[in-house]
């Protein structure tokens, strides 16, 4: 079986399947479960741009972003089955995001990273409580649970803005445009949410 490297190769794909309309998530998942390679082509068609945009915003590099997207398809192919994600876009987006962050770390080890990710990380570092004690760092699973409960406590708009910034690594202007907000409102919302997160983590006694 030949998997993707930039260009999608379909051995047995039909004309209707490779071009034309997009399949529904359930249909794409059925293809994965049948181990039909057309699943990959359909995934690329439906979610290629979405995953690419996530990777590009983190990596700020066309080539790296494309490679991350292709790695995403490979990971998805290996994960489904047994997994059957409820929402394919988010499942794929999460894989792309994790792969992109890993790649970004690798790049950063060689030279200082640039772009929106560096800025977003610098902002996010404001949320890290200053704690010099020698407690063990919180487990990843516990941190994820706490983050989720924190985000659920936020007002919808602030939560959305926070996720667009730190999950999707979108810039301020894009977030403002998406939600019809002023640029300053977005900045203020993020500033406040970061402060709240810091307070929350401190209150929970989190050591990162």
């Amino acid at each position: 079986m030949k998997l993707f490297c930039r260009n999608i190769v379909i051995k047995d794909g039909t004309a209707e399947m490779s071009g034309g309309w997009k399949l529904k998530d359930t249909e794409i998942l059925d293809l994965y479960f049948q181990r039909d390679q057309r699943a990959l082509a359909e995934t690329q068609k439906a979610y290629g741009n979405y995953c690419y945009s996530i990777a590009w915003r983190i990596l700020n590099d066309k080539e790296d972003a494309e490679e991350c997207v292709n790695d995403t398809w490979l990971k998805a192919w290996n994960a489904i089955p047994p997994s059957r994600p409820m929402k394919l876009s988010l499942f794929l987006g999460t894989i792309t995001r994790n792969l992109s962050l890993d790649r970004w770390k690798g790049k950063k080890a060689m030279k200082r990273g640039r772009g929106e990710t560096q800025v977003a990380l610098e902002e996010l570092s404001e949320c890290i409580p200053n704690n010099d004690c020698t407690e063990d760092a919180v487990e990843a699973a516990e941190l994820e649970r706490l983050l989720n409960s924190f985000l659920h406590m936020l007002p919808e708009r602030d939560c959305n803005v926070f996720l667009r910034r730190y999950w999707y690594v979108e810039d301020y202007a894009a977030i403002a445009e998406r939600y019809g907000l002023k640029l300053n409102t977005v900045k203020t919302s993020l500033f406040r949410t970061r402060n709240k997160l810091k307070d929350f983590l401190m209150k929970e006694g989190i050591v990162l």
């Binding site: 962050l101 990380l121 890290i128 941190l143 994820e144 990162l208």
Partner: peptide, 12 residues
């Protein structure tokens, strides 16, 4: 630590 936070966000 910041990177851990960023990665933990993936599980939102």
């Amino acid at each position: 630590s910041t990177m851990r936070l960023m990665e933990a966000l993936s599980a939102v």
